[in-house]
Design a binder for these strands. Structure first.
Lengths: 266, 266
DNA sequence: CGCCGACACTTTACGGCATAAGGAGATGTC
DNA sequence: GACATCTCCTTATGCCGTAAAGTGTCGGCG
């Protein structure tokens, strides 16, 4: 279920990631029929399939079909499904390397980063399902991280603490965006909107747990504080996720601000 | 890949979740052979399989085999793999309902909650892969959330902001623990420790990106600040995840503290 | 007692998945 | 023209969830 990237030959995958076509460049004319596809085309097709049908829909057959080939044809360009996913992962991260709020206050720049990351994950919902424990180590993944560090640099927080904060920010954005993306995906795949889903379950819950309000008083209090108008536009869960990101970011920024000390500098 | 729970008949699944055996209780002696298993046994077997082999290893065949049955035998007790997962999900959350730091300062109680949640996710690594967008609505899931709210209650933060903070905390703990859990799982499944993995890739990265240090100065700075001794004990990624949780929690607590205003009360 | 229907559980089958193995045809070099 | 090499294909294997149909066991009713 969780996809572990980078299992094949590291040398090969790394060369493809950094598009190191070999020290002697490409010999270019070799015997055999000319390739009808390119690696970039295969990766792009993979991204298109995953964007629409999720990681579950990313099959070699589906990618091949999009390119007018069979599944096995892809193995000419890519050694593995895992390698394809590595390349897809790094490719989409190119969308996150540009510093859009260059020179702005770090709080502003961080907010811009979070907003862009949110959009990014909604565009490519499968990204948040790829495990982070075996980083792909591609150029774009590195560049995207470098950008976040450039934003946090002016806070003067130490390297040690910065690593923790980067992790916390990443988990927050990933988690919130994943929830929103899955909410949309679930509605599409199951053909049941969130409202429908809730209307079907709410009375059943009430029937099966008639003492809900006394048993879970704080949950009841929490629900009572909702502004239903917000939900209609984007759906309950997506709204919750958006709020979690906004509130989490706010609280983290406040926490960084208050905990900055001279000893943290550099 | 992402598992959407609760797709079957809501009435049936909810009744099983809340163990509402029907208003007329159990008729108990009916024609036909006596059931050799119980629902609880099936759910427990599912949890055992998933704990060891992950969601990817959770197959009806595997669960059946653990119980000395075929895959199809399970359909007597459970209508679906999704329903089984719902029941497993709520069942394990029973481990998180007890208030262990009752009456303590909310900062202490929150730290205890985070530590327990961390352990919980390492015990049941598959939980963080179940989508949160279609909550199971079982008794234990509700009770676990109620407990977190009880901890946050003394901060006096409004319901609206509390929802955001709860989401942020959940995403942080889920993300960090998932990373640690996947790190262990990857080492086990691929038979390659994190150190081995890194030693295989580090020189390749250096060869393919000789200008790494000038291209990614801040990443280089970040890596330089690492205390290698920490990693030996638990592995690099698990340590990173632990730090992210600790630092994120610290910063969120500081942020809550500083942003508490009289207007937030109640 | 004998039979019927309900029920637990099994075997078999289907379409989907990644990918190993081997074959067909195209294209370059000699 | 022969041959090596390359792209792309077909086929096969062993997984998955679960539909369909069969087997044997039991309680209740005649």
């Amino acid at each position: 279920m969780v996809i572990f990237a980078s299992q094949g030959d590291p040398r090969r995958t790394m060369a493809l990631l950094w598009r190191d076509t070999g020290s002697a460049a490409a010999p270019d004319r070799r015997p055999g029929p000319r390739p009808g596809l390119t690696l970039d085309a295969v990766v792009a097709a993979g991204i298109e399939v995953a964007d629409v049908d999720g990681l579950a829909g990313l099959s070699m057959r589906a990618v091949g079909e999009r390119l007018g080939r069979t599944a096995m044809a892809l193995y000419t360009y890519v050694s593995d499904k895992a390698e394809l996913l590595d390349l897809m992962y790094d490719q989409v991260h190119a969308e996150l390397v540009a510093d859009t709020a260059d020179g702005a206050d770090w709080r502003t720049a961080l907010a811009a980063w979070a907003a862009e990351s949110w959009d990014f994950h909604l565009r490519h919902p499968w990204v948040s399902q790829v495990s982070m424990t075996r980083p792909v180590l591609g150029p774009n993944e590195n560049a995207a991280m470098e950008r976040l560090l450039r934003i946090l640099r002016p806070t003067g927080v130490s390297a040690r603490r910065t690593r923790g904060i980067v992790g916390a920010l990443t988990h927050l954005v990933r988690g919130a965006a994943a929830m929103a993306a899955e909410s949309r995906q679930a509605a599409r795949e199951t053909g049941q909107s969130e409202a429908d889903w809730w209307y079907a379950r709410s009375p059943v819950l009430a029937a099966v747990a008639p003492d809900y309000e006394t048993r879970f008083p704080l949950l009841t209090w929490l629900e009572a504080g909702r502004d239903a108008a917000d939900d209609d536009a984007v759906g309950y869960m997506e709204n919750e996720a958006r709020q979690a990101l906004a509130e989490g970011l706010k609280v983290i920024v406040a926490g960084i601000d208050v905990s900055r000390t001279p000893s943290d500098t550099i």
